[in-house]
């Protein structure tokens, strides 16, 4: 359908109601109400007539089927990632019911309050800024249809990857490489680095080091989508600016003795990079993010469509863990970029 056709609210409001609105501030309420009524009538009649002209045979059934298909696909996705998180015997009990029973026990009343969501997000941001070591597992919930292996840009697997984070700008991401070994990408706050390890093929590869802290993030989910996956502070700030954030209705419930704050971010615009939907579960007391789900990642020759990041440890790591020297032999060649 051509977009140059104006809908009646555009037509009507642009022709007369805009002026009416300006004038109506000085007119009596009855005139304003009449004007509103005319506009409302126009909108509904336009909808009825447009529908009459555009509807196609079997349209309703096709719409219903499309919705139910999408819902079933989503239902299939949920058990998969929950299944990854839970013990096998629990999976058998029925994941949806288990999630409800396992995770949540209280419902907060004002779940839809933008203010409350914003305050929670600010709290999480503040906490993330001064946090110590956190280790996350990354799982791919769903991949886009696989491209031909030769077209695949990154042979590193995100599924099963491990992310270590400290403070606002230190991280190490360990990813398996499909043909053996691991790719390590990291940053100690001053230098970013990348290398392959445990790979007989690449054992003589140089360690790549750069003072550009975003230099080696191209293989990370989120970075290519303008949402720095590993820099939680940046990511959370992006959430504030580019996403509609609201509290999840299940927020406030207890998980393993912790009251969890749940936030849902829906991308405001398709023009913005990043996943369409981000779900964050954080300890309400400490602000530590326990789980982050990213759904609807932009397609890039296949790759993950949905990811989950799950906190697995807060054990303190060696001071120099985020430096590249902790992960390779001293005699390995270094290439500064």
């Amino acid at each position: 359908m051509s977009k140059d056709q104006t809908s009646p609210n555009e037509e009507h409001l642009s022709q007369c109601n805009e002026d009416d609105i300006k004038q109506s501030s000085n007119n009596d309420q009855a005139v304003s109400e009449e004007s509103h009524q005319i506009t409302a009538d126009e909108i509904v009649i336009h909808g009825l007539l447009s529908d009459m002209g555009r509807r196609t045979p079997n349209e309703d059934e096709m719409r219903v089927q499309a919705v139910m298909r999408a819902i079933n696909e989503k239902k299939e996705v949920k058990p998969f990632w929950w299944g990854l998180l839970l013990k096998p015997q629990r999976v058998a009990l029925g994941l949806s019911a288990l999630v409800v029973c396992f995770i949540f026990s209280l419902v907060i009343q004002d779940f839809n309050s933008v203010h409350a969501a914003s305050a929670t997000l600010e709290k999480i941001i503040a906490a993330a800024h001064k946090m110590g070591d956190r280790t996350y597992s990354i799982w791919v919930i769903e991949n886009y249809k696989e491209v031909h292996p030769s077209q695949r840009k990154h042979p590193e697997e995100l599924d099963g990857a491990r992310l270590y984070v400290r403070g606002p700008d230190q991280y190490v991401l360990m990813q398996k490489i499909t043909n053996g070994g691991q790719r390590l990408t990291g940053c100690d706050g001053e230098l970013a680095w990348a290398m392959r390890v445990d790979s007989p093929v690449h054992k003589n590869d140089k360690v790549h080091v750069s003072s550009d802290l975003s230099r080696f993030r191209s293989g990370l989910p989120g970075h290519q989508n303008e949402l720095p996956f590993i820099n939680l502070n940046d990511q959370l700030n992006q959430l504030q600016d580019k996403y509609e954030v609201e509290l999840l209705p299940e927020a406030g419930r207890e998980v393993e003795g912790r009251v969890m704050a749940g936030l849902l971010g829906i991308k405001k615009s398709r023009d913005v990079g990043g996943p369409k939907r981000i779900e964050i579960w954080a300890d309400e007391q400490t602000g530590v993010i326990h789980r982050m789900i990213m759904d609807g990642m932009p397609r890039a020759k296949g790759g993950p469509r949905s990811l989950i990041m799950e906190l697995i440890s807060q054990t303190e790591l060696p001071v120099d863990f985020y430096s590249h020297t902790s992960h390779h032999e001293l005699n390995r060649k270094i290439r500064f970029e």
Binding site: Q5, I43, H46, L48, S50, D60, R63, V64
Partner: peptide, 18 residues
């Protein structure tokens, strides 16, 4: 969904010509 498909379609067509 079935009960509200046509209503919602009309509502959306009242708001967008695309």
């Amino acid at each position: 969904v079935r009960e509200n498909t046509r209503m919602l379609t009309v509502f959306l067509r009242s708001r967008s010509n695309d």
